[in-house]
């Protein structure tokens, strides 16, 4: 197995063009497990950890976060601007894993159980990918195409994610059968976008890919009055929960039953809606 260690992005893209079979590795929290268990023996590993431009983030109208920024920095440096992504990052593995693991890696693996995916969907993130042929911007919605499959071409690398700073309350919630260090049985993300009078809602680990709950979003876009916010009726929360649950197509597996996943998604959707709307109400009242 070749271990390729480029120091610039240009060099990395050239290598990837020449060796499309090379598997990119950043934190190694997924790839190394697969290697150790002999599930995968790639001809080459492409180490991205020496490429500084992947390990930085920048401000602006929108945030650009290099694909190699580890979870711990998202939590510590971007928690105020991206609360949903920080909450999801906080649920990833153990401190050691959060020191190494990256959102880029989450996207590269494209596991339906990846913790950051629902937040990226609910927050309209755009994935920046590059190759020697140029740069493409892929909406999160179009990025996940199957179980552990994404829409990258063989010569492309994930270089960054683009996200607007949160303009409204965001929440992320994940069920695991342990109180820490656990893979999602199912997860849910909700972002309020008050400026556009709409919400983003997405489920994780409850379908072949992470997926938006479109009907649930539509329902809330009509049911929520962003201009004259009032406390929510329980019936609205319940209906939203039902629609989120219906958006999922989970399976029975060793981590949980399909019926439980559907049930839990409805509960998480109700609760996160309550929390985000309450936060929005409180902020509006403070401004008024």
């Amino acid at each position: 197995m070749d271990f390729l260690r480029p120091t610039t992005l240009a060099e990395a893209l050239a290598v990837k063009a020449e060796r499309p079979d090379a598997v990119p590795i950043a934190g190694g929290t997924d790839v190394m497990v697969e290697l150790n268990f002999d599930h995968r023996r790639p001809a080459a590993l492409l180490d991205l950890t020496r490429i500084d431009e992947l390990r930085t983030w920048s401000d602006g109208d929108e945030l650009r976060i290099g694909s190699g920024v580890p979870y711990v920095r998202i939590i510590e440096e971007l928690g105020a601007q991206l609360p949903g992504l920080a909450m999801a990052s906080r649920t990833v593995g153990s401190p050691q894993i959060r020191n190494r693991g990256t959102v880029g890696g989450n996207l590269g693996a494209a596991s339906p159980a990846g913790d950051t995916h629902p937040v990226l969907l609910a927050s309209d993130a755009v994935i920046e990918v590059a190759s020697v042929r140029g740069t493409r911007m892929i909406e999160a919605d179009d990025f996940y195409v199957g179980v552990k499959r994404n829409s990258l071409e063989p010569d492309e690398l994930i270089t960054a994610i683009h996200l607007a700073p949160a303009a409204g309350p965001q929440q992320f919630s994940k069920v695991g059968t342990r109180n820490a260090m656990v893979i999602a049985v199912c997860s849910f993300a909700l972002s309020l976008h008050p400026g556009e009078k709409r919400v983003g809602a997405a489920v994780g680990s409850a379908a072949p890919t992470p997926r938006r709950a479109r009907d649930a979003e539509e329902f809330l876009n009509h049911a929520l009055d962003f201009d004259n916010p009032r406390p929510l009726l329980d019936s609205v929360k319940r209906e939203f929960g039902e629609l989120v649950s219906q958006a999922a197509s989970p399976i029975d597996d060793v981590r949980g039953s399909a019926a439980y996943r559907k049930h839990a998604l409805a509960v998480m959707a109700r609760r996160t809606l309550g929390w985000t709307w309450q936060e929005f109400l409180t902020e509006e009242q403070a401004c008024a």
């Binding site: 649920t91 929440q171 992320f172 919630s173 109180n179 820490a180 998480m268």
Partner: peptide, 16 residues
């Protein structure tokens, strides 16, 4: 959160 069921996975703020 660390003292609640679900821990930092943020599943409850006391509900249920």
């Amino acid at each position: 959160l660390r003292q609640l069921p679900g821990g930092v996975s943020n599943t409850t703020h006391g509900e249920g």
